[in-house]
């Protein structure tokens, strides 16, 4: 199993008290499968992704990413795990305005200290895989919303992550482009054997997932 959240509880300060964002959540996602998480706004979906991405440590429970128990890792090791074993597809593409599409993807290799020449070829391969072979040298302001989202996906895949965390990937896209992006994600999950968590509001996406989980008031059901 590539991603495991075991009895995870996460609370935040909320005024004088504490708000429970995740309540004894258990989630395991094997390699090559897509687990879709649905739920209303504020139910804890983004908190689930934040914990799985090691961006925040839970109050209780274990988070195991590709065999590594994150509780035992210091901040530097968590950053390393995140850039080498976890891919994040943000809800908004979050591309850096000064980088071309190819450089957005190369950046991940640069962060990991890999040679630039090999990274350049690999970045172009990935952009071709998401249908952007001809847009590699364009900066974000010259790409459409759908193209930016596909660059976001290519960037997440650059370091061959074991875990792919996808946050509402089609929220800014029309139906046709959204369907294309989802096809791409599911296909890449199968092909590359990643464990993919897909947070979505879109009921049409659920049919493509291997499992559908519901988040409500911090509790995950259907796991």
């Amino acid at each position: 199993m590539t991603l495991l959240l075991d009895d995870v509880t996460l609370t935040y300060e909320d005024g004088g008290g504490r708000l429970t964002a995740l309540d004894r959540v258990r989630l395991d996602v094997p390699a090559g499968t897509v687990a879709a998480v649905v739920g209303p706004s504020g139910s804890g979906k983004s908190s689930l992704l934040a914990v799985a991405a090691t961006l925040i440590a839970p109050d209780r429970g274990r988070v195991v990413v590709d065999g590594a128990d994150t509780a035992a890792l210091d901040r530097g090791a968590r950053s390393r795990l995140r850039r080498e074993r976890v891919g994040i597809v943000f809800q908004q593409p979050n591309l850096l305005p000064s980088l071309t599409a190819a450089e957005q993807v190369q950046l991940m290799a640069h962060l990991s200290g890999r040679p630039p020449a090999a990274a350049r070829d690999r970045a172009r391969e990935l952009l071709a895989a998401v249908g952007l072979a001809g847009e590699a040298d364009r900066r974000p302001h010259r790409l459409s919303g759908g193209q930016r989202q596909r660059v976001n996906i290519a960037r997440a895949l650059m370091n061959d992550p074991a875990v792919l965390l996808v946050d509402e990937p089609t929220s800014a896209l029309d139906h046709e482009r959204g369907a294309a992006v989802l096809d791409l994600l599911v296909g890449l999950t199968r092909e590359r054997g990643t464990a993919t968590v897909l947070v979505t509001h879109d009921r049409e996406h659920l049919a493509r997932a291997d499992r559908v989980l519901t988040m409500r008031d911090g509790r995950l059901t259907g796991a």
């Binding site: 390393r80 795990l81 850039r83 994040i88 850096l96 991940m108 962060l111």
Partner: peptide, 16 residues
Amino acid sequence: APEIAVLKALGASTGY
């Protein structure tokens, strides 16, 4: 700041 947050989320260390 928003770009720095993205870079940190992607795994860039503070030292980098």
